[in-house]
């Protein structure tokens, strides 16, 4: 047989081509998610903290968060009514239920229909981070909390939570 793929000198370039263009499709499908591109969300919420990708929480959680902004995890984050309306609409449409990402399905499933409004308290989140000792996060003055995703996931704002982009502030690379 003398097909294209059997020619030895063509095999290497074909393999390289395949690797280059299709690797993201086969990468750990948990750690690459769509990045946030809604300016209002990036400005209003991203002013104080990472603009968490909305698929991290179910609809009901976003709804609760957006109706209790006057006590937003201990902070006052009140916004004008119209802004709240627009942000809520965005968050609901992009919430875990509306995402086709495997990560969203896993997070959602792990809640077992409980209303959990902290991403860091979702059972799936906890499971994924249970090997990380406190000294690297909660006891690490440069990280302080699991809520500060971008202190370790250096490309979190781009929706990239892959392992090779993890660099724990004040500590360095992390290998699972």
């Amino acid at each position: 047989m003398d097909t294209l793929t059997n020619k030895l000198y063509l095999r290497i370039p074909i393999a390289l081509f395949t690797l280059l263009f299709f690797t993201p499709l086969f990468a750990d499908d948990n750690s690459l998610i769509p990045s946030v591109n809604y300016p209002l969300y990036l400005n209003e919420c991203g002013d104080c903290h990472l603009a968490y990708q909305p698929l991290f929480l179910p609809q009901a959680a976003w709804q609760r968060i957006m109706t209790t902004l006057d006590n937003h995890f201990g902070d006052n984050a009140e916004l004008e009514e119209e802004t709240v309306r627009n942000l809520t609409a965005y968050l609901l449409v992009h919430s875990a239920e509306h995402s086709s990402q495997k990560l969203a399905t896993k997070l959602l499933k792990s809640t077992e229909n409980q209303l959990i409004i902290r991403i860091t308290e979702l059972p799936y989140f906890k499971k994924e981070h249970d090997e990380i000792p406190a000294r690297l996060v909660t006891d690490n003055p440069q990280v302080k909390s699991f809520s500060h995703c971008d202190k370790c996931h250096t490309k979190a704002s781009f929706g990239n939570y892959e392992e090779d982009s993890i660099e724990i502030a004040g500590y360095g690379r992390w290998d699972d």
Binding site: D47, C48, H49, F73, G74, D75, K144, S147, H148, K151
Partner: peptide, 14 residues
């Protein structure tokens, strides 16, 4: 205390 300096969010560190 110095308004000309960069500040930091007490909770999130931003």
């Amino acid at each position: 205390p110095d308004l000309r300096a960069q500040g930091q969010h007490a909770e999130t560190g931003k």
